[in-house]
Structure formats: structure tokens, C-alpha cells
Write a protein that binds this DNA or RNA. Structure first.
Length: 467
RNA sequence: GCGACCGUAGCUCAGUUGGUUAGAGCACCUGGUUGUGGUCCAGGGGGUCGGGGGUUCGAGUCCCCUCGGUCGCCCCA
């Protein structure tokens, strides 16, 4: 398949880590996108979009350093300067966007003076990462982003979590299948500082914590030793706070008053605020505190969270990035948001049998034909097919037709059923006398109606279609 | 970048210790059962067995290389 040249020309296959969306796959993609879009809009988010490639510097500025190696780079071959730069430095002036947050921050920073606070934006951009594909991870994928900008309170954190949770409900997933794991980088930083870790070593300690479960035995302790951190005390302290927070969460979930938590830590106060905001949204049962969640991105501040399902890769992740807009030349502006990819979400939906079949997708996407027309008579019926279909389409109806050469009713009805049309319109002998036969493909009822009444009849069907 | 497994029609696969013109089901197209919907019957298009090289009288079936896929590691926005 690599090179079957000769008589029929070279065959190509899509690049590694990309997908071809044939009609069925496209319908599934639209199904997910529709849920994302509908839920975001009803939660008061406005849709935005940005360019699919940005200046490389936009990503260099904010993300971690290691990220740069996973970018697909881009440049114009028409510019000798660019070509030379790429040859010399290996760095192109542009990069295909690997995430959306920098674009969003840039867009907000550009118009910050005129933007309302809070601003709530969502986007469904396509992203590119030059990673090796594996389960739940491709090189080209969609990611739903929802962000609340300009509200520093944990109420905003809860809002973005709530929109994600509501979307899961929309698709049939429950808190039994998913968990929102909450953490706060400031809390962990406070604790680290409290037990004597130097300010310069804190980000390194966070990285260690992030990888604790994945590191080989002993490596975590070794890393801690290098920054003068007592691993046992560190983890014990973290676990103690985590437990008291989760106890509080459990109590509130059961309708009991929140237990007092004695602390003068701003981060704890913030987490308690988050807890109360999540309770107000009625989504505590989806949540738990897990202070081992750190997130890899350098720009996160304060609240961070991941949403996980079983053993799959995290289905969504996000957090606060209170300094990013400022870094892009805007006014100091707090912001919080998350990204959710379509790849892992699709896997989770499939696992739980929650992806509708073709008929369900057609229904859900509002793509069912209003009518499926075929001719089952002589040549005069065949000749009437195209004009009739054309008339229906001009009238705004979704009309499909059979392309089969047969005039057997059973085959044509099968053809009609395969289109998931609401009804079949049969052009038969009656056509010469001004009538057509109709058949409701959902309940099987049939009528002979006047050709002149057809458009109205089909229109009415569309209105009364059953769910 | 590293590792494991896999690679026969669009899809799922069969293919005997290497032996004549490579098979099945599904899907697709056509026709029949002389006019009603995931039945039945018949026929058809479509693979040079991922690609290249080698061993052999002869390879889909053995060896090497290569490309691709899947799943891990690294990384994870």
C-alpha cells in the first residue's frame, strides 16, 4: 500500500495520527460537537474561533519548554528569510496550534478594554500535536474549550466545571462513570514553602508530585532529597488536607453543614469557596479533591482539575491562568477554563454504549430527510421524479430520491428506509390522474393524496415527527 | 526517540507440513420471487496476499529490509 504505482496511479493514505471522516464518522463527530455547542450556549458562553496557526513565540512564551518539540511548525516557502531561519535554527515562525488557551488570551488581551467582566467564551477548535499516536491520543483532534475571563472568584471555577458536567449528562454519562478531580497549585505551593522548600524549587516539586505515580520506585524520594524536601512529611501533610476537604465535600453532598476547617491559608479558603460554589451548582457528587493533580502547563495558577473516566487518559483538564492575559499585553485579568478532546470522549461514549446508531444520529442531528421519493410505474413516472424532487427542494424540504434502476416496491422501500426518511413518496400509476402514494416510514400508514397537496402534507409531517 | 504485537478484497476473517488460474461472510451493484420496508434465491464488480529483496523447481505460507497500523514508555496543552 505504500507504493502501488503503475497503471492506476499512486495511492496515498492520510498522515499518521489523522482521521478520515466518512459520513458515519462525521455524524458521530457532529453529535459530539452539537452537545458541546448546545450545552455551552445554554450556560451562557459565546462561541469564538481563531487561526489554526499562530506565531511560534505565542507558545514559547507560556507553555512549558518541553512542549516545543511537539509542535507542528509552519512557514511560507515563498519567504527566503523564513526558509533560512528554519534551516539554521530548526524553528519556524509559525506553529499549528497545539492548544487554544494562548489564542484565547491573545484575543482577549487585544480587546480587553471593551470586554465585559466576566466574559464567557467557548470554542471547538482543531488542534495539532506532533506526538506519537496511541489510544486516546492523535495528532489532529478537536478540543472543546470553555473559559470564564475576568472573575477571580472560585464561582468562575465552578461555572466552567458545571458546563463540563452538564455536557456529560447531556450525552448520558453519569457521576458513576466520571470523576472531576480538583486541586490547587497554590495550596501545594504553600505547603511546600511551609516545610522549607526554596521558592525556586517549588515548580520542580510540583513536577515531582505530578509524576509520583509514574516514577520508578525510589525516584520520587530521590528527587525530593535534591530539593531538601521530606517526602514522607510532604505526602502526609497533603493527604491530611485532602482528607479533611473530601470529608467536607461528602458532608455537604449529604445535605449536612460543612465542617469547620481551621486554617488561615488563602488557598484553603479558596478551596472552600470552590466547594460551596460547586454545591450551589448541584454537582458535588461528580467531584473529589485530589492534590496529586498538578497539570503540566506552566501557566496554571491556583485551581487545576482533571476529569477522568476509568482507566482512560484524562478526558478533560483545566484550571486557572490568572497571569496569562497580562503576559500577552492585556490588563491583569484572571481567567479559568478547560479543554476536552473528542478522542477520549468518543472512547468513553463507545465503552458505555452511548454513541447512537445511524438512525439515532440522523434523528439527533436533525438530518432525517422529510421525504424519500421514488418512481414505481412506467416511463412517465420515471420522468416525473426529478421535477417533483426539485420542487420539494425549492420549497425548503429535505427530499431524497432513489437512484436504483429497479421499480420493485420492496427494494425501493428498503432504499427509503435506509435513508431514515420520515416518509416515502411513491410516484405510481395514479400520477397521471394527479395523485401520489405516501407512506409514513415510522408507523407504516399509507395515503393516496393529491399531487397538489403533497408539499403541505410533507411539511405537516415534519412538524409532527415523533421523537 | 525507545519497545511489543500485527499487516490476505471497503469491513471481519479462512487459506492445510510452501504446490495448479487466492476463498467466505458482510457491504455495494444487477436480476428473480410479476407492486410495500434490515427476508430468500441467483449473478456481478472489487485483492497480485502492505512494499522490496532473498531462499526454492515453485511462497500469501520461510529469511532480511522497509513502510504502515495498534498498544505501551517518554511526554501530555
Amino acid at each position: 500500500m505504500a507504493d502501488s504505482s503503475s497503471k492506476r496511479g499512486k495511492k496515498f493514505q492520510g498522515p499518521k495520527g489523522t482521521r478520515d471522516f466518512y459520513p458515519r464518522e462525521m455524524a458521530r463527530r457532529r453529535y459530539i460537537e452539537q452537545a458541546w455547542r448546545n450545552v455551552a450556549i445554554r450556560h451562557g458562553f459565546d462561541e469564538i474561533e481563531g487561526p489554526t496557526f499562530e506565531s511560534s513565540d505565542l507558545y514559547a512564551v507560556k507553555s512549558g519548554e518541553g512542549i516545543l518539540g511537539e509542535l507542528f511548525q509552519a512557514f511560507s516557502g515563498k519567504s527566503p528569510e523564513d526558509v533560512e531561519q528554519v534551516m539554521k535554527t530548526g524553528r519556524a515562525p509559525y506553529a499549528l496550534r497545539p492548544e487554544f488557551t494562548p489564542t484565547l488570551a491573545r484575543m482577549f488581551a487585544d480587546k480587553a478594554a471593551s470586554m465585559p467582566r466576566p466574559t464567557k467564551w467557548f470554542a471547538i477548535p482543531i488542534h495539532y500535536r506532533a506526538e506519537r499516536p496511541q489510544r486516546g491520543r492523535l495528532r489532529e483532534f478537536l478540543q472543546w474549550n470553555a473559559d470564564v475571563i475576568g472573575d477571580e472568584s472560585p464561582r468562575a471555577d465552578a461555572e466552567v466545571i458545571a458546563v463540563a458536567v452538564d455536557m456529560f449528562s447531556e450525552l448520558g454519562l453519569s457521576s458513576k462513570q466520571l470523576t472531576v478531580r480538583l486541586s490547587n497549585r497554590d495550596l501545594v505551593s504553600e505547603m511546600l514553602a511551609g516545610i522549607g522548600v526554596a521558592a525556586d524549587d517549588i515548580s520542580r516539586a510540583l513536577m515531582l508530585l505530578d509524576r509520583r505515580d509514574r516514577l520508578p520506585a525510589g525516584e520520587f524520594d530521590k528527587g525530593c532529597a535534591e530539593i531538601n524536601l521530606d517526602p514522607v512529611a510532604f505526602i502526609a501533610g497533603l493527604d491530611a488536607v485532602q482528607k479533611s476537604m473530601n470529608d467536607a465535600l461528602a458532608a455537604m453532598e449529604n445535605g449536612k453543614p460543612r465542617p469547620e476547617i481551621e486554617s488561615d491559608s488563602p488557598a484553603i479558603a479558596n478551596l472552600i469557596g470552590l466547594l460551596e460554589a460547586l454545591a450551589a451548582h448541584g454537582i458535588l457528587k461528580w467531584c473529589e479533591f485530589d492534590f496529586s493533580i498538578v497539570r503540566g502547563l506552566a501557566y496554571y495558577t491556583g485551581t487545576v482539575f482533571e476529569i477522568t473516566a476509568g482507566s482512560e487518559r484524562a478526558i478533560a483538564g483545566g484550571g486557572r491562568y490568572d497571569k496569562l492575559i497580562e503576559m500577552f499585553g492585556g490588563p491583569p485579568t484572571p481567567a479559568v477554563g478547560f479543554g476536552m478532546g473528542d478522542v477520549v470522549l468518543s472512547l468513553v461514549l463507545e465503552e458505555h454504549g452511548l454513541m447512537p446508531d445511524d438512525a439515532g444520529l440522523a434523528q439527533s442531528l436533525n438530518q432525517r430527510p422529510d421525504a424519500f421519493v421514488f418512481a414505481a410505474g412506467g416511463p412517465e413516472c420515471d420522468a416525473a421524479l426529478v421535477p417533483l424532487v426539485a420542487e420539494m427542494r425549492r420549497a425548503g424540504l429535505h427530499a431524497r430520491r432513489s437512484y436504483k434502476s429497479t421499480n420493485k416496491i420492496d427494494k425501493l422501500l428498503k432504499d427509503a428506509a435506509a435513508s431514515f426518511a420520515r416518509c416515502a413518496i411513491i410516484i405510481d400509476e395514479g400520477f397521471s390522474k394527479g395523485t401520489v402514494a405516501t407512506k409514513d416510514l415510522d408507523d407504516g400508514t399509507q395515503h393516496i393524496i393529491k399531487r397538489s397537496d403533497l408539499l403541505a402534507w410533507v411539511r405537516e409531517r415534519r412538524g409532527v415527527s415523533k421523537e
